[in-house]
């Protein structure tokens, strides 16, 4: 974990109410895809936790939906403006569990951390199947980006306006995959949990106080006792999840 100053390089709208911001700064604390950053924003007391979509040695990308004041303010910041971030938070996905054919299942703004994961899996010579779920066509993003990495990509929309009609669980193959990584809203995670035969990892979201394990604001129950989503998560093993 590190605290530091980051400079906004650019922000693009990539889908309806969905933005991608590139932040330049020290990324040495980020050690695994699925980790998150906690961003201080003027006008908000608490930081905003956002999963890291991807990173390189010069900076990182976050993708977020403008759901409230904090994320709306972030989307409107100009290039060159500075932000204070805590980086390298949370455990992230464990790539060693992937096997030869992992399935990545993302819903909405749960998709971004799976992109960083897919990129690193491909580098290790593992070709994942990515199943990306959205509500409707205008919310779809990153289909092309996943495909350009070399992944197989299936897009599903709830209303059928793009890709397959239905939920991500409708687009999931029944066999042929070795492991799954899922990130998205809790009802999606639960449905994925119930529909998968393999082991897997699920990334959870919760309202946080600190983001680094001190305040117990984001506690959850697991089969192995209480865990903190921010510190012991956000990624939990399928086998430890209690619904």
């Amino acid at each position: 974990m590190k605290k530091g100053s980051y400079i906004i390089e650019n922000t693009q709208q990539i889908a309806k109410n969905t933005y991608r911001t590139r932040l330049k700064g020290d990324t040495s604390a980020i050690v695994a895809p699925g980790q998150f950053v906690n961003i201080a924003l003027a006008g908000s007391f608490l930081r905003r936790p956002l999963s890291v979509c991807d990173w390189d040695e010069k900076g990182l990308w976050v993708i977020y939906k403008t759901v409230g004041k904090g994320t709306s303010a972030l989307s409107k910041l100009e290039p060159g403006q500075k932000l204070d971030l805590l980086t390298g938070l949370g455990n992230g996905f464990d790539m060693e569990l992937a096997g030869s054919r992992p399935m990545l299942i993302g819903g909405g703004v749960g998709v971004p951390p799976l992109y960083g994961l897919a990129k690193r899996l491909m580098k290790q010579g593992v070709r994942p199947l990515a199943i990306l779920g959205f509500n409707t066509a205008e919310e779809v993003f990153y289909e092309k980006e996943f495909a350009e990495l070399g992944c197989d990509v299936v897009v599903a929309t709830v209303d059928g306006s793009y890709g397959q009609k239905g939920f991500v669980t409708d687009a999931m193959p029944q066999e042929g995959t070795t492991f799954f990584y899922a990130c998205g809203p809790e009802p999606m995670l639960k449905a994925v949990y119930n529909r998968t035969n393999t082991s897997g990892q699920l990334s959870f979201e919760e309202r946080m106080g600190c983001g680094f394990g001190a305040c117990m604001g984001c506690a959850c129950r697991t089969k192995y006792g209480a865990k903190r989503i921010c510190k012991d998560g956000p990624v939990l093993m399928k086998e430890e999840v209690v619904w």
Binding site: L46, E206, M208, C215, M216, A226
Partner: peptide, 23 residues
């Protein structure tokens, strides 16, 4: 103690709310 159910944290003007519940 596990404490209260989540969400336990909320934003407020110049502050925050918590209902951790003595975990």
């Amino acid at each position: 103690r596990f404490g209260n159910e989540t969400p336990r944290i909320a934003e407020a003007p110049a502050g925050m709310l918590n209902a951790v519940g003595l975990q």
